[in-house]
Amino acid sequence: MLILRCPYCGVMADETELVPGGEAHLKRSGPGSSDDDFEGYLFHRENPKGVHFERWRHSAGCGKWFHAARCTVTLEVFGTYPAQVTEPPQEIREAISSKRPGWSWREYE
């Protein structure tokens, strides 16, 4: 069972209080983009064994979207952070680096 700290409420929210929102930090390719970019935006997703970034919604609580960084192998949670960002914040990256040296995920490391 995954337990994530909601960065807005500050409470430890059980997985069943949350709704998963898929991969985090997608970059939208909209009108005017190439077919390849649009296809990638719609369909291509990471499927990592290890560090992963996801979106979650505290649906039974404050109702807000937030991001979580976790390990898909051990379910270890490296941290959660608000959704008003376009890339993982520095402190989250440092927290991951201290536990998974040499990690990378998409263009981030």
Partner: peptide, 11 residues
């Protein structure tokens, strides 16, 4: 005040 769920519904 804790917003959470009771069985299957938010409360």
């Amino acid at each position: 005040l804790r917003r959470t769920r009771l069985a299957q519904v938010p409360a």
